[in-house]
């Protein structure tokens, strides 16, 4: 075939595709805005085979790490085709706080077509198992007497970990020192090596490290089935319910019926891996449709209010 013939053939096939569109009919690109090996990536790779089975097409995972996710998010809003064949993993509160705090972020919080939020990892306050702090109260009492000397490690600045630490300070009337690390990974040796007094981390870490750490409090509304012994902040009188949400979105302008089809597929895939996910410490949720955007707005407002008091 000559190039011309081939081009014509391609154009023809493309036109037919438009006419008889039955989404999906070719490979879907699932972009993850973090490095391979991170929690977002591993969750996506868990979903991948199930998504392929449900949708009947290939699903490839593309890692576009950078800027705490912002590079891929800004690209998705600028240049990704809104045809449903490109979807991108999104994280809260990241997409809410980054545009508030940075210059050149390149995307807007609500400018996604949210497919579904499928995972929630509440904040968890952890200490080493030989720590003198047996309960949250003991930590608070000590911090009251020694302002600033209790160091809390966490993942990043203006993240769920950071904000929860600030909330704890405000609600308990104490003065803590938050030390941000580059991701959850490096926080663990810092805690186990005794370089920080406690960690504000996420629930999977409490499960993964359960034989080396003690969970003083967890920021879910009720106790978690996979961490039955970990008390919540709320039951200890500190009203913190917060954490990070993981979900998936399509670029702005993706047709509603395609988003719905994807919502169904992702919810089904989530259902199939729910058990494994909970064992690893992830709470499973199914927040889709209007609720999905609602959740983004709630989180954005809440964090804006807290960050306001910081300034």
């Amino acid at each position: 075939m000559t190039l011309l013939q081939r081009t014509l053939a391609i154009v023809l096939v493309a036109l037919m595709g438009v006419a008889f569109a039955q989404f999906p009919e070719r490979t879907i690109d699932y972009v993850i805005s973090f490095n391979a090996g991170g929690e977002s990536d591993i969750t996506a790779r868990l979903q991948q085979p199930h998504l392929e089975e449900i949708l009947g097409v290939n699903v490839t995972i593309t890692n576009r790490a950078g800027g705490g996710g912002a590079v891929a998010w800004s690209e998705s809003q600028r240049s990704m085709r809104p045809d449903g064949y490109s979807v991108i993993g999104v994280n809260l509160p990241h997409i809410a706080t980054q545009p508030m705090e940075r210059t050149d972020t390149g995307y807007e919080t609500e400018n996604f077509e949210f497919i579904t939020w499928f995972q929630f990892t509440p904040n968890a306050l952890l200490v080493r198992d030989d720590s003198p702090f047996q309960t949250l109260d003991e930590l608070i009492a000590y911090a009251k007497e020694n302002p600033g000397s209790v160091t809390i490690g966490g993942s990043g600045s203006n993240t769920a970990n950071h904000i929860a630490t600030l909330q704890l300070e405000q609600l308990a009337g104490i003065d803590l020192t938050y030390v941000p690390f580059t991701g959850t990974g490096p926080t663990v040796p810092a805690l186990l090596g005794g370089h920080v007094s406690a960690l504000m981390s996420y629930s999977p870490m409490a499960v993964l490290q359960s034989d080396q750490v003690r969970t003083l409090a967890i920021a879910s509304a009720e106790r978690l089935s996979f961490l039955p012994d970990a008390p919540t902040f709320v039951e200890q009188g500190i009203e913190i319910v917060s954490g990070a949400h993981r979900g998936v979105a399509a670029p702005p302008g993706t047709p509603a019926e395609i988003v719905e089809a994807l919502t169904e597929a992702f919810e089904e895939a989530t259902r199939r891996i729910a058990e494994e996910q909970e064992e690893m410490g992830f709470a499973i949720i199914y927040v889709s449709g209007d609720e999905a955007l609602e959740l983004v707005r709630e989180v954005t407002e809440e964090y804006a209010a807290i960050l306001e008091t910081l300034q």
């Binding site: 190039l3 081939r6 081009t7 995972i61 593309t62």
Partner: peptide
């Protein structure tokens, strides 16, 4: 390697 290279029209 499942790398999405820039596709272009051809």
């Amino acid at each position: 390697l499942a790398v999405r290279l820039p596709a272009g029209p051809f």
